[in-house]
Design a protein around this nucleic acid. Sequence first.
DNA 1: GGTTTGAAACTTTTT
DNA 2: GTTTCAAACC
Length: 772
Amino acid sequence: MYDFLNEPQKEAVFHTEGPLLILAGAGSGKTRVLTHRAAYLIEEKGVNPYYILAVTFTNKAAGEMRERINDIVGYGAESIWVSTFHSTCVRILRRYIDRLGYGTNFTIYDSEDQKTLMKDICKRLQIDTKIHKEKSFLDAISAAKDELTDPIAFETNAGGDYNKRIQAQVYREYQRELQKNNALDFDDLIMKTVELFKLDKEVLNAYQERFRYIMVDEYQDTNTAQFELVRLLAMKYRNLCVVGDDDQSIYKFRGANIYNILNFENHFPDAAVIRLEQNYRSTQNILDAANHVIANNVERKEKRLWTENGAGEKIRFEQLDTGYEEADTVARDILEKVGNGSCRYRDCAVLYRTNAQSRLFEERFLISNIPYRIVGGLNFYSRKEIKDLLSYLKTVSNGRDDLAVKRIINVPKRGIGAATLNKVSLYAQEQELDFYTALRRAADIPGVGKAEARIRPFVLLIQSLRAKAKLLSVTDLLKEVIDVTGYVRELEAEGTEEAVERIENIDELISKAAAYEESVEAPSLDGFLEEVALVADIDSLDSGNDYVVLMTLHSAKGLEFPNVYLAGMEEGLFPGYRAITSDEISPNGANTELEEERRLAYVGITRAKEHLTITSAKTRMIRGETRFGAVSRFVKEIPPELLEGRITEPEADFPEEELSAFRKARKAFLMPPTQYGTSRPSGGGGDFGRPAYPKKKEPVYTPVGSQRSFSSSSTKNTRLSYQEGDRVRHIKFGDGTVAAIVAGGRDYEVTVDFDKAGTKKMFASFARLKKI
DNA sequence: GGTTTGAAACTTTTT
DNA sequence: GTTTCAAACC
């Protein structure tokens, strides 16, 4: 069974003792190595599968690994612990978190819950959320938790920094509130587990004894807390095998610490390092393109993917006038490929940088009758109706979860309003009660008065549901909630399209509850709530159905498709504006944000097995505004000989013809595809009064000087129209004098002394300065 | 207490 | 273009 592995793969499988770092390039068969390694441990080394832990990031990855292990391991595969970081921690905490002063039936808060809670806290602490945004507090707290910084340490670190002191205060309050609600946020799951291990050597020892062989997938995406968790667990037996690809590290924004993988050998000096560079997924052309792009990064471990699959076809590049035409081009291409039998819908994937880009594709696919599935965006479990019903279940399970109680107390309408809620809240705070208990004593609360008559039925409802929960299955309890609250009946009465959709979602929730009860041995209400809290949209992606998949590049990591479209490859969009303007430079001289975007491009390119089509639009509507974008630098980093299609730079001045093309494309977009395109509108036709896009709003134009020329391309020289000492005008800052111009890699950095706005440094491509 | 309306913010990426 | 949030109204 191990004969099918190549040499380095074998080496990795047979290296079972001590720390091991596997640098696995895209498509190099790392899952194969991990599963075979598990099999080898059990069957050749006689390791009890009970001692093996495999950790991944998504449930989907965990599920796939579980399945493949089951396929190759004969006996005992089911006792291998395969799960995500988050569910692993939940499982541990459900058993021992009482040692940290929480109840083991804790609730898990999603980002919406976090935001609600944070709003509450800001209000209570009288923080002006116009100055300090809730989001910024949550970001700071999340970053702190990723680094295992607790509120006390945070405060110490804050020193005299005014902003940090406020953050520290909010963090402390936020954490106290979570504990009061017996709730943990996502980051807590990891941090509290580490805390538990550090506090309680007995518990740590028990898990160290259990997890004698640990494997971590996607290691490049671990953050400091996750690293610490793994380090603690592996400390005793030191059989830690991590698999990752530094070139695919794309979660820095979420706290991933790329140095975990780059410095693994420093943390574990006796670590063996194995590189997997043979790719089994893509054609050589696709790999060459990926290799060339990623080679522009400074901060990486050198490696070069190769394959025995032939060169394959060239990479197609299409530059369209508008985002609408881009969607149209992709749709046509898919229809053609499916039509001539060269692929099925499910072989195709459209990948983009931001979720917002999905809309145009969705509209076009709908019209063209292309079956599709969008991954990401609004999670099923974040829908209002689902959250409402789950909040009932949460209230039944954990009465201390104030957020859940407050969410449903007036859903359906019971005539309990903000004024009453405030009184109850205040009372709860004074008496140090949870919100639900305060409700039960509504009669004693001053000022509540006749509102008590409205509160009592709610309390009785919850009490009766609690009694029933002991007898009913999760599914039946859910149905009971729907019945006694009249939730669906109300929607039925409404009768709108939206209401129908909500009912469908509720039916879906019931099915999910039923499926849950069938899939686990000892189903419970808490178990269901937990599963539901930890799913990502990508988890439900099923390759059995025949549809085109649309998703962000982030969601696409770990997946592969024969036919991939990389859409929206434009400067300002991908790489994003933030990354381009970022001045964060690492000690090695790498522009960290830009390199992360480049890794994302690398991930995108390497998803393709056979066909890769890259598209970009010259104009694009972003937030109701038309923007002009040059072709992404990442496209230009692909050697021209691998590309089919040409890159043209847009005109430097405001291109009226493109604007009119944009208007027409938008107009034509919602017509059936057969009409559109065959008779493509040409200029000069009757115009309807005002143009859709007022000219006075000047679009952002982002030219990037091309460093190389392309076959048959009309590259425009982007020499600046002004020099030092010239008077220039800026859209926002007004008039000023150019103080300095410094040539950068692909752009100029211009310093301007503005008459009114002061001195600003900016990139020429963004400043759009005009000589006056 | 509930509903409607208009302004404002929003966009990276997610377990 | 879409969603969210507060104020004004019923």
